[in-house]
Design a binder for these strands. Structure first.
Lengths: 167, 167
DNA sequence: GAGCGCTTGTTCGGGACCGAATATTTCGAC
DNA sequence: GTCGAAATATTCGGTCCCGAACAAGCGCTC
């Protein structure tokens, strides 16, 4: 007896518990499986790609954003990484202590702070990325090409729908 | 000038930045959109259903697990909620202080700790659930029934694939 | 029944995380 | 030019989060 349940058993338990109620199960399975998949993937990538790099998941995401967009303003990076400004401040403190990234002042607006990768940060991202993408491919290994595109499309619709209704 | 990018612009920037490299874009769009959608959904549910309840996302998930499965052992709840045992210890301390949930000893094994909702915790879940499910339906509003099922199916495949290769 | 692996939950240290409050800077109105 | 409103990053307090170290209990072997 391991105490560990499969996803199938979990879904059965939910169905049993909510049997009498008026529930939109299709919506529930879609949403709850997004959350489950996201946790499982993050966990997998932390244990494979990020293990031994000294980077946390969020630290990696922040560096990824700066890598992709080039030098950036902090509020842009926070939004893109999906974290609050105050969280970013703390993460930057960590990343700066590793010398992976540096702050510098905005040329004209003294309120703003700009970010860029250092040479070592740039090198780290270049070395991590192939392994990262290889693990992404591993994650969707059981899906065929059409399913992968369909998955991305459906998720894109959800994100855009929520983006359009926020604020 | 808002500093805010749409998902489309972000994907374009990534394509530009990685243009020359050998990248599995299908895998990348699928995986990165799972993460984005998950963040957006969690954020949305926190701002709607959980606002004014005093519950954090994780606190809600823990209570949800105990609600669905009935009285449970802590290691089971931690696994099902997707958090570590040590995190659960801290969250339980918070939830117990709210009197939403209580610990009690396992009948035969004195190492183990059991959990159950209090009457007020049970009442809270019953009152929150309809609104929660309504918001889940809102999240997938732009998808038709077939897309919702396909989305859940693909995500289930990913979770099961990662479950089967862990350890 | 003593010893020894194994399982279990907690503690500990350090980082991530958020909203609210704060300090600084910008910009428009006048 | 000066005042006030808006925008910006940081600080602060409290919670979440993890892995490693720990303490306690179980169960097997002998």
């Amino acid at each position: 007896m391991t105490g560990h349940h499969t996803l199938r058993q979990t879904e059965d338990a939910i169905g049993d518990r909510l049997g009498g109620l008026n529930v939109d199960f299709e919506a529930m399975w879609a949403v709850s499986n997004i959350y489950r998949a996201s946790s499982a993937i993050r966990n997998h990538l932390e244990q494979t790609v990020l293990r031994d790099t000294g980077l946390t998941w969020t630290g990696f995401v922040v560096m990824w954003v700066v890598w992709i967009w080039g030098e950036s303003e902090t509020r842009h990076v926070a939004a893109e990484a999906g974290i609050s400004k105050s969280t970013l401040t703390g993460v930057l403190k960590t990343l700066e202590s590793y010398r992976h990234l540096r702050r510098f002042p905005h040329p004209t607006d003294r309120r703003r702070v700009m970010l860029e990768l250092t040479a070592s940060g740039e090198r780290l991202m270049r070395s991590l990325f192939p392994d990262f993408n290889r693990q992404e491919a591993f994650v969707v290994k059981e899906l065929d090409s059409e399913q992968r595109r369909g998955l991305a499309d459906s998720l894109r619709k959800i994100v855009q729908h929520l983006e359009s209704t926020e604020r």
